[in-house]
Computed example of a mutant assay.
Amino acid sequence: MTELAYQLDSYLQSIEARVAALDTETHAVQLDRTVIYPGGGGQPHDTGLLETPSQTYPVIKAKKIGGEAWHYLSPETPLPAVGNAVTVRVDWPRRYQLMRTHTAMHILCGVIYRDFGAHVTGGDMDPLKGRMDFEFENLSRDLISVIEEAVNREVEAARDVRVRILPREEAFQIPDLIRTKINLLPPEIAEIRTVELVGLDLQADGGTHVANTREVGRMRIVDYKSKGKINKRIYVEMED
């Protein structure tokens, strides 16, 4: 199983690894360890590079399949051999923007759950922008302004962001650990990674995050839409 080094240190930008397997049909390699996030939970995959003394391999996509992280390489480069040592480097500017964005989504989710008791019904993000759907029956421009002020107070509160990996039984003793309407965690997962915005939000989560809410920067709610009788979508952007 691939060691996912980013799970405990999202700021790790490179790591030494070995090629564990190849998929010549999709031009992908499996590594024994990685810093490249393979996507999931609404957060896009990272991009980056694999490097050897003689070759650089652009990583254009990554995906987790059955506990293994696969890195899809540019078809213009040959595949490295199984057993080769490689340096794995993440595209850091893009990754850091996604870290800020993902933490912003948790701030939004935490504020709306705390202040209105609304569950998340869906979400998606790109660097410095994202959207989340909530169980709201009514949503107005005035309420959007209230929410925007509240989320930016949480940014300025400089709340620490803490990551832990817990046994499944211990994790599910935490009240409201799953903030989505449906629990999407497969029953075979024995350990649960939790992300806590101290004093605001605590959820099961597999993505990458900044260490403090102040790093997110100012958040703007740029739009909102009705997606059903009790389903409203909120669009958020962060300053570059």
Rank of each mutant, 00 (worst) to 15 (best):
I65G: 00
S226L: 08
L22P: 03
A171V: 01
P186E: 03
G228M: 08
T121V: 10
W92R: 01
N138S: 13
T26R: 12
G42N: 04
S140Q: 14
D223R: 14
P58I: 08
Y113W: 13
R95K: 07
L12D: 00
F134N: 10
A190R: 14
A158S: 15
R218D: 04
G41N: 09
G207T: 04
H119R: 15
F116I: 06
M1F: 00
L108N: 04
D115T: 09
N231V: 09
P93A: 12
T121W: 01
H45C: 15
V161R: 01
Q203L: 02
E239F: 04
I192P: 02
G117E: 09
D91I: 05
R162T: 09
D160K: 10
D240T: 12
E137A: 11
A158M: 12
V19F: 02
E156F: 00
Q173Y: 00
E149K: 15
L4Y: 02
A204H: 03
D23F: 08
T101Q: 14
L128S: 13
L143T: 14
V86I: 10
A28M: 08
F116R: 12
T87K: 14
P44G: 12
L50Y: 02
V35W: 03
K63T: 07
F172M: 10
V88Q: 05
R218L: 13
F134I: 03
F136H: 03
Q7W: 08
E76K: 13
R141Y: 14
H106K: 11
V210D: 08
I15F: 00
T101M: 11
P53L: 01
W70V: 05
T52L: 12
G67K: 03
L128Q: 13
L139D: 03
D126G: 06
T34I: 11
Y96E: 06
Q30F: 02
L139Y: 05
E148Q: 14
L8W: 00
T34R: 01
M125V: 07
I221W: 12
G41R: 03
D32V: 02
R159C: 02
P186I: 04
M238I: 15
P127N: 01
R193S: 01
I107V: 12
T194V: 10
T180V: 07
D23A: 07
G83I: 06
L143W: 09
P53M: 05
A157C: 09
E148S: 06
R94L: 15
V146H: 07
L4T: 00
I221F: 11
V210E: 10
Y96F: 15
G67E: 12
L202H: 11
E215M: 10
G199N: 13
E188T: 07
G217K: 04
D126E: 15
K61S: 13
T213N: 10
K63V: 05
L98V: 13
E51C: 08
T87P: 06
D32H: 01
I174D: 02
H27D: 07
V210Y: 12
P75Q: 10
Q55V: 12
Q97I: 05
P75V: 02
I182G: 01
K63E: 14
R233T: 08
L4A: 13
I230D: 10
N84S: 14
G67R: 05
V120E: 13
G41D: 03
D32S: 00
K229Y: 10
R94A: 14
T208P: 01
P80F: 04
T103W: 09
